[in-house]
Amino acid sequence: MIQAIAFYFFATIVVGAAVMTIMAKNPVHSVLWLIMAFFNAAGLMVLVGAEFIAMLLVIVYVGAVAVLFLFVVMMLDIDFAAMRAGFSRNAPLGLAVAAVLLAELLLAVGAYNAGGITLGSPDGSAMQAAEVSNIEALGALLYGRYILLFEIAGIILLVAMIGAIVLTFQPPKPGARARQDVGKQTRRRPEDATVMKNPEIGQGVEL
């Protein structure tokens, strides 16, 4: 009973927020609705007993990815009229993408219902029947059976990260502003920079 209420509560908000994400006129509002959808999707994950995935969803998507989205969108100077002008021109493309997504979704549901998934029944009860917490089950799989795939994924991410750094790194130009040396700055004392002088009246100071 309560589970059903909670499920429909989260599900309604996810769908509603997703719709609002594409309907909202202000892009910042769109991102905020998207965050709302992420957060409630995490609620759905908790309901099916995948609390680890739920927490990761919040930490990674809500806590990191969406913050970057929000950053970018807030910084942009967007012309709303120009954005809406392209609606009819881009509509066929959008519909095509939507059709592909729908087909994939149907395919996935069909494949799922057909069975043949080794780790867990379609209703997802197998994991709980094994009395293993999410983290342990995932850890055993990732670091056991799928260790090679896991490490390959890690290396791909590392390559992407190094690539991004290489692409954006600019060596300091000679003659540009001097680089700061924090150690040097904090070692600096008043004696290094100031001198006490007591000049005669009308004489001034020579340095």
């Binding site: 910042v28 957060f39 680890f52 990761l56 919040v58 913050v67 807030m74 917490s133 999410n134 983290i135």
Partner: peptide
Amino acid sequence: NVGLLYILAISSMGVYGVVMSGW
């Protein structure tokens, strides 16, 4: 089970209050 992750998740939400108010 995931108490610590929950804390991390919730505290990562905290940034939205600040960003939204600023914007």
